[in-house]
Nucleic acid binder design. Structure first.
Lengths: 294, 294
DNA sequence: CCTTTTCTGAAAATTTCTTTACAGACTCGC
DNA sequence: GCGAGTCTGTAAAGAAATTTTCAGAAAAGG
């Protein structure tokens, strides 16, 4: 008997789901996720309620219960109940922990706390005005948009660029190599937008770039940390995200969160165009696929 | 209406029992005590099981449910379930608004809610075993480490790569262009590690890559979403992160969080070496700077 | 100690839930 | 683009649970 099959015959319902997830069909996965998202309470409902809440049919629920090694759905329900009894009888308070199986001191939980706090602080201090105006800037196709990041934030610049590419044209991702930057600046027109990512340790070249871009009449938007990159001097809008982490490095999660929220907001503003572009993109991907096959 | 009577019509099941305890008959009190002793799990069983466990008859159970203001026993059961849901549901989810100046419906706050929920779900389901073993794999300098991402996850691959570069050598970031992939596979040795990022829409080429890598004897680690990339079939460890967002795209924040936590854990394991490398890196940056100045 | 009232549980009746059967939809491979 | 196989949901059959009925038992009051 394989490890996966054994996992499907024993252990908690959650474990069995994980163990056999690969064998599950689309509808079953949908159901499995619903069960895990609201574990274990959802599974304590009747089969009809579970099916309804998961958006699948009743037979799918019954079938999956069998697939997980139970005699039928009621038996799965019994298992959930007894698991719950175990958990509740067990006096260890498990509720305020993130990863329940891990001790509070595990790096996962400490990191989760830090990220949580970073997001909270970032949001509390964010300027709604800067947010909305940045969204307007990025949604405006009259303006070219340039995106650049430093050593550790290059990935974020790339991320923003990739998503914005679907939403609009007129985008440029500025390469890491600062030798080439003057060429980009040469092309900037008044009204263009330059998005800069810069967290400590701040990069001097980015400061120069911002300075030059502003001289050319470009509007600078900056994503930085709470200590603020010197680029802020040249930025029309800047976002100061918390980046503290229980590690030798900083956490960029809060920055990524703000970036994603901005992408979502821009996409809302330009939904019709975005939808068309997404459709076109899908078609192109399909063509590439066909092309590769032969 | 008296306080007791009101208590019997509202509040938790436990409260209702206490409120009307004086009105209960002998068999009912016996039942009530059994329910409270094993609260709330016993009450989630069938009426027959409850009757049996309490040493009373089924009609007694049904009658008491009505006496407590329910329509019947199933309704009491529903109430217990929803109480449980309240208790178990993440207490942090009921946040005081994130960005206080913004309305709850502002995209920032809706996004914050989604990200919060994604992190919570991701952590709840993460396999600690997979986490720890992945950390060990990445900390082991005997193994070459390869990192690759898809169109939307390339940035995450890049992020992991950039950070790991400081911690250790023997790292390769696989380029986006899948034409070049066979060359990388050619170099893989048994024991090497391949980290793949793949979220929907899943990329067929990544599946092929994973397959080839495994054939070469490499260990595959996968970061994917809750629907799981087909790459999971070939992965020794996979992380299923929640990516839901109030937008046409998915949120990669939870994935980035797990990646950062892993980086932090690897760095802890290799702290002495990492510190030396960081120092050396600083020096090199300083030299570059000097070089540029003249 | 007997009558009246209330309570309790066995068993039937009913309702609700679960499973099975089947046919349409979809996918995958050729 | 087409056929074999798989998956999924509707609807009916079957199983299980719940409620009701009712008769006997226990308690309360005289």
């Amino acid at each position: 008997m394989s490890a996966a099959a054994r996992g499907a015959q024993n252990g908690t319902v959650a474990e069995r789901i994980h163990a056999r997830f690969d064998d599950l069909t689309r509808a079953e996965r949908q159901l499995a996720n619903a069960l895990l998202e609201n574990y274990p309470v959802l599974g304590l409902n009747s089969i009809a309620a579970v099916a309804d809440a998961s958006g699948v049919s009743m037979p799918t629920v019954a079938r999956m219960a069998k697939k997980l090694g139970f005699d039928g759905f009621p038996e799965l329900k019994d298992k959930l109940r007894s698991e719950l009894e175990e958990t509740i009888t067990n006096p260890i308070a498990k509720h305020d922990r993130w990863a329940e199986s891990a001790p509070d001191t595990h790096i996962l939980n400490r990191f989760a706390d830090a990220v949580q706090e970073n997001m909270h602080q970032t949001l509390r201090q964010i300027s709604l005005e800067a947010f909305n105006e940045t969204v307007d800037l990025l949604a405006d196709t009259e303006r070219e948009v340039y995106v650049v990041g430093g050593r550790l934030t290059r990935a974020l610049a790339d991320y923003l660029f990739t998503h914005m590419q679907v939403i609009r044209g007129g985008l440029t991702l500025i390469k890491s190599n600062s030798n080439t930057w003057p060429h980009y600046v040469l092309n900037m027109k008044p009204g263009d937008t330059l998005v800069i990512f810069d967290i400590r340790r701040y990069e001097y070249d980015l400061l120069r770039l911002a300075e030059m871009a502003r001289t050319q009449g470009a509007t600078v938007v900056l994503f930085t940390d709470q200590w603020r990159s010197p680029v802020a001097k040249h930025a029309a809008h800047s976002f100061h995200c918390r980046i503290e982490a229980p590690s030798a490095w900083d956490s960029n999660v809060a920055i990524m969160f703000v970036v994603e929220a901005i992408i979502a907001a821009v996409q809302n503003l330009r939904w019709t165009e975005t939808r068309d572009r997404m459709k076109a993109l899908e078609d192109l991907f399909d063509q590439t696929k066909l092309f590769k096959k032969f």
